[in-house]
Simulated scan of single mutants.
Amino acid sequence: MVMTEKEYQPINCDDYDNLELACQHHLVLEIKLRGGERLEAKACDLLLRKQVEYLIVDVAGEQKELRLDNIAYFSHPTIGKIEISLAD
Score class of each variant (00 low, 15 high):
Met1Gln: 08
Met1Gly: 14
Met1Pro: 04
Val2Arg: 03
Met3His: 11
Met3Trp: 03
Thr4Arg: 07
Thr4Ile: 11
Glu5Ala: 13
Lys6Tyr: 03
Lys6Asp: 05
Glu7Pro: 02
Glu7Cys: 00
Glu7Met: 11
Glu7Arg: 13
Glu7Tyr: 00
Glu7Asn: 09
Tyr8Gln: 05
Gln9Asn: 00
Pro10Leu: 05
Pro10Phe: 00
Pro10Ser: 08
Ile11Arg: 00
Ile11Asp: 03
Asn12Leu: 09
Cys13Tyr: 12
Asp14Ala: 13
Asp14Lys: 14
Asp17Trp: 09
Asp17Tyr: 11
Asp17Leu: 13
Asp17Cys: 05
Asp17Thr: 14
Asn18Thr: 00
Leu19Glu: 00
Glu20Met: 14
Gln24Cys: 02
His25Val: 08
His25Phe: 10
His26Phe: 04
His26Thr: 07
His26Glu: 12
His26Met: 11
Leu27Arg: 15
Leu27Gly: 08
Val28Arg: 10
Val28Asp: 14
Val28Ser: 11
Leu29Ala: 01
Leu29Tyr: 01
Leu29Pro: 01
Leu29Cys: 09
Glu30Leu: 11
Glu30Val: 05
Ile31Leu: 02
Ile31Ala: 09
Ile31Trp: 07
Ile31Ser: 10
Lys32Arg: 15
Leu33Phe: 11
Leu33Arg: 15
Arg34Pro: 01
Arg34Val: 10
Gly35Pro: 05
Gly36Gln: 03
Glu37Lys: 15
Arg38Gly: 10
Arg38Tyr: 09
Glu40Tyr: 09
Ala41Glu: 02
Lys42Cys: 08
Ala43Gly: 06
Cys44Trp: 07
Cys44Val: 15
Cys44Thr: 08
Asp45Thr: 07
Asp45Gly: 01
Leu46Met: 04
Leu47Phe: 00
Leu48Val: 10
Arg49Thr: 07
Arg49Ala: 10
Lys50Cys: 09
Lys50Ser: 13
Lys50Met: 07
Val52Leu: 04
Val52Lys: 01
Tyr54Ile: 09
Leu55Glu: 13
Ile56Glu: 15
Ile56Asp: 13
Ile56Asn: 12
Val57His: 11
Asp58Gly: 03
Asp58Trp: 01
Asp58His: 09
Val59Lys: 15
Val59His: 13
Ala60His: 08
Gly61Ile: 00
Gly61Cys: 03
Gly61Val: 04
Gln63Asp: 01
Gln63Lys: 14
Lys64Thr: 04
Glu65Val: 05
Leu66Pro: 05
Arg67Ala: 02
Arg67Phe: 06
Leu68Ile: 02
Leu68Gln: 07
Asp69Thr: 01
Asp69Gly: 06
Asp69His: 07
Asp69Pro: 01
Ile71Ser: 02
Ala72Lys: 07
Ala72Thr: 00
Tyr73Asn: 04
Ser75Gly: 07
Ser75Lys: 10
His76Phe: 01
His76Val: 05
Pro77Ser: 10
Pro77Met: 12
Thr78His: 05
Thr78Lys: 14
Lys81Gln: 12
Lys81Cys: 04
Lys81His: 03
Ile82Asn: 06
Ile82Phe: 02
Ile84Cys: 03
Ile84Leu: 12
Ile84Asp: 03
Leu86Val: 03
Ala87His: 06
Ala87Met: 10
Asp88Glu: 13
